[in-house]
């Protein structure tokens, strides 16, 4: 359950960061276009809800991480690298082994997916004009895909 929660929170963290960056870049770009004389005026709506979501999730994740570090510190057998992230399960030696396997699967997937994402820019050469969101959301999707693959691999191997 804890793994599901941390993966969902981490995914939301990346999505909220991508939205925040997108909002910032979108507005900055309008100012840039205005400054260069491409447009005469523009209007924007600026909301702070996404920023609040980002801050709340960051705080929850930091608390979870500190709690995990505190709890695991009592377990003399566990090594720090085994529980450095709340996603890492170090409850016993089998969990540590499974975490290692799941991380290996996720790493392979991230390498392949990044390759595809980088290549996809060839199909959207006008992304900086028409699809300003594209780089932010595709970049955010890389760790999200990695987390999802990690979660699925962990759960499958753990249930064996």
């Amino acid at each position: 359950m804890r793994l599901y929660i941390t993966v969902i929170l981490r995914t939301l963290l990346y999505i909220s960061l991508a939205i925040m960056v997108y909002d910032f870049v979108r507005i900055e770009q309008q100012f840039e276009l205005l400054g260069r004389g491409y447009i005469d005026s523009f209007s924007v709506n600026v909301g702070n809800q996404v920023g609040q979501v980002f801050i709340v999730i960051t705080i929850i994740l930091v608390i979870m991480n500190v709690f995990q570090l505190f709890v695991m510190k009592r377990n003399k057998r566990a090594k720090v690298e085994d529980y450095i992230l709340p996603e890492y399960d170090a409850s016993d030696e089998r969990s540590v082994e499974i975490t290692g396997k799941a991380v290996r699967f996720a790493f392979v997937f991230i390498l392949l997916y990044s390759f595809l994402i980088l290549g996809s820019y060839m199909f959207v050469p006008n992304y900086f004009l028409d699809f300003v969101w594209y780089p932010m959301f595709t970049t955010a999707s890389i760790p999200i895909i990695g987390l999802i693959v990690y979660l699925i691999s962990f759960k499958i191997i753990y249930s064996r």
Binding site: R77, S91, D92, E93, R94, S95, Y158, R160
Partner: peptide, 22 residues
Amino acid sequence: IGVTRQTIVSLEKGSYTPSLLL
């Protein structure tokens, strides 16, 4: 022995090889 119940389940099924310490 300081492990989770799931570890005992997979140990009994023969799908997990324990460490020497375990």
